[in-house]
Design a protein around this nucleic acid. Structure first.
Length: 499
DNA sequence: CGTGTTTGACCTGCGC
DNA sequence: GCGCAGGTCAAACACG
């Protein structure tokens, strides 16, 4: 009995059944309405199940009613439970039935009640899981907010100290000290924490703590790094240049690769790009195009676009760097996530499965196969790949030996479901992203944004939602809220398109 | 004329 | 040191 698989799909109709039956315990009920709101009324509905004790029907009367049981099929083959009770009163308290005829329906009723209690228990467990997930998400959100505040305070403090030091001509030593201090607090200065940073901040500071207006947690940017080095080199230093470069290089080289199925030559991610080169890459007949962001002068963000050699329908877009300018809403999802993904990649020993497991990022008991994201530690540059082209049944081999996937933990009912491509990173981000280092929603934002770039996405999403919600006429946008998800999918999910 | 693309040359890192 | 491959530059070109 594969109970985990059917729990979610079963519990909603069960409550519908119970809910619809409210006040009409002697009628046959066929649950068709799958409104998720009924889920919230589940607890009370269970109590309403006792059909024969709440309406004054004593046992004697029950014995004198003939029961016709029907099987109500709630969900497309996922669960079928004998909950439809056709209570046809053929005689009122007559004595025409034998004891066996009377006890048989009684036994069925008892079984039914036991089954419903069991379902209630399962539903309670599921609700508990949902509550836990929601709580984790809220915790992470609040902690992120606190971290943002803390970082902002540090930035202001740093700025004030920098200005004071400049006035006294003794800036460098203390600046470096402050930078080191900041590093010790968070080895990857989070631009995401600079959301409201004062733009009067000095350029040097900006280069150390990029003033990305987005939740940009990668921090270091290629241009900013160079500027930082150049500028700091103009003042006495406690660190030599090589050490600084060495410190910065890993940040600079982190990349986020997005694989999406698209016939378009470029995924429209909300940013403006200028093509600055094209090369034939070895092992791929398709040329690789190089783009840089032109939304602001000196923006260090670049991306490479190349078709997959094995499947030319797959477009591989690789992002590098962080925007140093405000982004339109349509671009923030992708930008946020590439930054967050890069930050996750750069956060330390996240390049091997063992390291991930030991760090708690990847549960040692990963119960389900996953396909969404892979990290490559053996690639020339650390790269995280978000693969939006796969279905759970078409898992490819890992790109490199040192790769891993984000686990889908706790949502087995979504395995094999189209929405599986959306939910896993959300759950994974919520449950596994270390505190203060990553934006838990960023990963899913990128995933959803990239998925949305696929012209087939809307139809697939609608079908998925219809399956889960049981509302064939459901609005796609409304349906994009995964049942029980702590928050809804980003708005940008529906704004990305392919060119 | 301004902007974006194309494309060959050049630079850099890495392996042998 | 040499060759290779990835990445970038910049002049030439196309287009509105």
């Amino acid at each position: 009995m594969e109970r985990p698989r059917r729990e979610l799909t079963f519990m909603r109709p069960s409550f519908d059944f119970l809910h619809q039956n409210h006040g009409f315990p002697d009628r046959a009920v066929v649950a068709e309405d799958n409104n998720m709101d009924d889920l919230d009324r589940g607890n009370s509905a269970i109590r309403e199940l006792d059909l024969f004790s709440t309406k004054g029907n004593d046992v004697d009367c029950i014995k004198n009613e003939s029961f016709t049981t029907t099987t109500t099929r709630f969900d497309s083959g996922t669960a079928a439970v004998n909950t439809g009770l056709n209570l046809l009163t053929t005689s009122s308290c007559g004595n025409s039935m034998t004891i066996n005829q009377v006890e048989k329906p009684n036994r069925q009723l008892r079984e039914l009640q036991v089954e419903l209690k069991r379902l209630h228990h399962e539903n309670s467990k599921l609700r508990g899981m949902l509550d836990q997930i929601s709580k984790k998400y809220k915790d992470l959100h609040s902690q992120l907010f606190l971290a943002m505040q803390k970082q902002q305070q540090q930035s202001h403090l740093h700025q004030a100290q920098h200005q004071k030091n400049e006035q006294h001509g003794t800036s460098s030593g203390l600046i470096m000290c402050a930078q080191q201090q900041q590093k010790s607090i968070d080895p990857r200065p989070s631009a995401a924490l600079d959301v409201n940073i004062d733009h009067s901040i000095s350029e040097q500071e900006v280069s150390v703590s990029p003033s990305n207006n987005n939740t940009d947690e990668q921090g270091k940017q290629p241009a900013s790094i160079d500027e930082s080095i150049d500028q700091t080199s103009q003042t006495p230093k406690t660190h030599n240049k090589d050490e600084q470069i060495q410190d910065q290089v890993p940040f600079r080289k982190a990349r986020v690769s997005v694989r999406a199925r698209s016939q378009a030559s470029l995924i429209s991610d909300g940013c403006q790009w200028r093509k600055y080169g094209q090369k034939m890459a070895k092992g791929n007949p398709c040329p690789r195009a190089y783009y840089r962001c032109t939304m602001a002068g000196g923006c260090p963000v670049r991306k490479q676009v190349q078709r997959c050699a094995e499947d030319k329908g797959v477009l591989i877009t690789t992002y590098e760097g962080n925007h140093n300018h405000p982004l339109p809403p349509t671009a923030t999802a992708m930008a946020n996530t590439t930054s967050a993904a890069a930050a996750m990649l750069l956060s330390g020993s996240l390049t091997s499965k063992d390291a991930l497991q030991s760090s708690g990022f990847l549960p040692s008991m990963m119960p389900y196969p996953t396909t969404m994201a892979t990290l490559s530690g053996s690639a020339p540059f650390p790269t995280i790949t978000l693969d939006l082209t796969q279905t759970p049944n078409t898992i490819r081999g890992p790109p490199t030996p040192a790769t891993f996937s984000l686990p889908l933990d706790g949502c087995p009912q979504l395995m094999g479901h189209p929405l599986y491509n959306i939910v896993p990173p959300k759950l994974a981000a919520m449950s596994m992203v270390p505190l203060g280092q990553r934006n838990p929603s960023s990963m899913v934002e990128t995933v959803t944004a990239a998925i949305a770039s696929d012209p087939n996405f809307t139809a697939a999403l609608a079908a998925a939602i219809s399956t889960i919600m049981g509302a064939p006429n459901g609005n796609t946008n409304e349906g994009s809220r995964f049942p029980g998800s702590p928050d809804q999918l980003p708005q940008s999910c529906t704004t990305f398109s392919t060119n």
